[in-house]
Design a protein around this nucleic acid. Structure first.
Lengths: 151, 151
DNA sequence: TATATTGTTTAGTCTTGACTAAACAATATA
DNA sequence: TATATTGTTTAGTCAAGACTAAACAATATA
């Protein structure tokens, strides 16, 4: 790997770290995703810690987090003792499913509120209805994207 | 407003607070959005502080934040001195525009990385290409949603 | 069995940023 | 002009959680 390529890889990893942080996730989780994206895997547990210069505890916590999100998976290698990690086969499907889960919760909250409030509050009723329309549209779009990624 | 309705309103406001917090935004910002959604506005600056039981400093900071996001707007009332706030007319368009801004940045990062890395890294090249496809699909969906909300 | 390796958990530190109270600046009103 | 009102800014507190080091448990290997 050329020096220039190394720089690009490092930069990408850090960018992913910042992207994740902006989404309210740990920076290390983003770095992990970046690394698993941009370099040939799978990576051994210890490799990850050394490569990203973070503690093994952080690797343990954040690999678990990403596993739960469904975007990475823990695999084994014949003859090897430790765990290895790689991007899951369909990380974006899991991501979209997670987003839709949260959207559906928010949608349910809006519905519940609209339901419980007097129909005579025209302004509020219509605002809540518009909020629901927004959520529904977003959810539908995600479903469509899921379908197109599946094919 | 009945007691039951009051409860629903309070619950909705708190739910919005938690939703915003999950997105990495201040809880108070979410509470503000919830309040402006579910009760007739516009609200005076001081009213907001009292109603949500938070300091005026927090109102100042978070109304500015939400104004910058384009989801609320500051308005005046004839004969009144202070500022008033209400949901902007098209909060979801602003929201979607903001999301697409971030997605486009992430997309650009992925492209830049793929560009700079050797074409011979087949695995990595294709992973980055898939990432780009995902971002592009998401962005297109949002644009479509924007259009449908505009009409 | 003893030792090494590996991942998780725990205890504690440190940073970030949400939040408040109070000072402040600007403007309105008396 | 003096006083009151209003929103912003500043200084400081506090809490959440990201992160680490080390203890630990489990398993493999010698």
């Amino acid at each position: 790997m050329t020096k220039k390529e190394q720089e690009i890889v490092e930069q990408f990893i850090e960018q992913k770290g910042m992207e994740y942080q902006a989404e309210g996730l740990p920076r290390i989780a983003g770095r992990l995703m970046g690394l698993l994206l941009i370099e040939e895997g799978p990576f051994a547990f210890g490799e990850l810690a050394e490569r990203l210069q973070v503690s093994r505890g952080s690797i343990s916590t954040n690999t678990r987090l990403l596993e739960n999100l469904g975007v990475i998976e823990r695999v084994s290698k014949p003859g090897k003792r430790g765990d290895f990690f790689q991007q899951s086969s369909e990380p974006y499907l899991s991501l979209l499913a997670g987003i839709n889960l949260r959207l559906n919760r928010a949608l349910a909250n809006a519905k519940q509120a609209r339901d419980g409030l007097s129909k005579s509050r025209k302004k509020v009723q219509s605002r809540l209805a518009r909020l629901e329309t927004f959520y529904q549209g977003f959810i539908e779009n995600n479903k469509r994207l899921i379908q197109s990624l599946e094919s």
